[in-house]
Simulated assay, not measured.
Amino acid sequence: MIMWLASYPKSGNTMLRAIFSSYFHSPDGNFDFNYLNTIPQFPNNEAYEKIGIDPTDENSVVKNYINVQKIYVKEKNLQFLKTHSLFENKNINFTNKTNTLGAIYVVRDPRNVALSYSHHFDRSIDRSVDLILDENNFLTGRIPIHYIGSWRTNYLSWKKLRDRCYFVKYEDLVKKKKETIIKLFKFIEKLSRQYISKDININVDLKRLDNVIETTSFENMKNLEEKNGFKENPNRNENKKFFNLGINNRWEKRLDFIKKAKIENNFEKEMKELGYL
């Protein structure tokens, strides 16, 4: 079954993916960019082509989300997949409970998301604010198409998974890393024992976890990108790095009053719910 690592773009999904890939797929918990390949993004070309669907055909992509996911579903086997997609779009469900065990959704203060979005996609801050407010937003240049909606609709859509979705704040993933990761493991164990096998146990290896925490720090991943590059960085400009400011990306210093008010007025209810206001 699939455990989704879901989020709006630029909310910390790559950090979460690094944590899980290094803990579950490296020999000792030490992170390397190559381990990210063990947790592919969905939707992706390879999966659609594997069952004979044209990944450039938008209607076929959307209508076959669930059919294509079946290639990842194996009995008593847990597959992590990354996504920025809405849980539901065009009145079509992105997944179902036959394919999906659950999801971990990373949420981040939308004022900081707008700034990180601006850097990552090489857009002005004004344009980035408009995009994260756009209910019909999708990731440009991605095949298959990725419908992401606004920051709010993306977040609210995954709440439809109810008790099978664990919401974690990016800020906690950075500042309370060890405590937060252990909670995520317990959540996965609980769902796995309920829906896959009662015999499943995730016994946390603290030495391995310490290695994960050390090598998936923002500073270490930034250094790895400096040394080796990072193929998931969409910027061709070598001076524009994927790992830019991290927790030091502070809206208080870079968002003017108008942009700040625009985000807060549109997302007031959700931001208060999450403790961002």
Results as ranks from 00 to 15, higher is better:
D32Y: 08
D134C: 11
D130T: 08
I143P: 00
K272V: 12
L255C: 06
S197W: 15
E232P: 00
R162K: 12
N237S: 07
L277Y: 09
Y195D: 15
K240G: 08
N239A: 02
F257R: 14
T100N: 05
K70L: 03
L101I: 04
I71D: 00
S22H: 09
Y65D: 05
K259H: 10
K76T: 07
D130V: 07
K198I: 04
V106D: 00
S7N: 03
L245Q: 08
F138K: 14
D205N: 14
N203L: 11
N96Q: 09
L184E: 15
L133T: 08
I125D: 10
R254S: 12
A6D: 04
D199Y: 15
K169T: 05
L36I: 09
N223I: 05
T180I: 05
L78G: 07
S60P: 12
T215R: 08
R193Y: 00
Y276D: 10
K74F: 02
T216A: 04
S157E: 01
R208D: 14
I92E: 07
I19R: 02
V73Y: 09
G229I: 03
L131F: 12
Y195H: 14
N239Q: 07
N30S: 15
R123Q: 11
G29P: 03
R127A: 13
N265P: 06
E225R: 03
T38A: 13
R17L: 14
E270K: 00
V68T: 05
G275H: 04
R111W: 00
K222A: 09
D54L: 06
F218A: 12
L161E: 06
E268R: 08
S22Q: 07
L206C: 10
A114N: 04
F243S: 00
I2A: 02
N237W: 02
E135L: 10
N137P: 08
Y276Q: 06
H146N: 10
P110G: 05
N13M: 14
K76F: 09
K260M: 04
I19P: 06
G275I: 05
Q41N: 08
A47H: 01
E226V: 03
S116I: 12
Y23R: 11
S192T: 11
N249I: 00
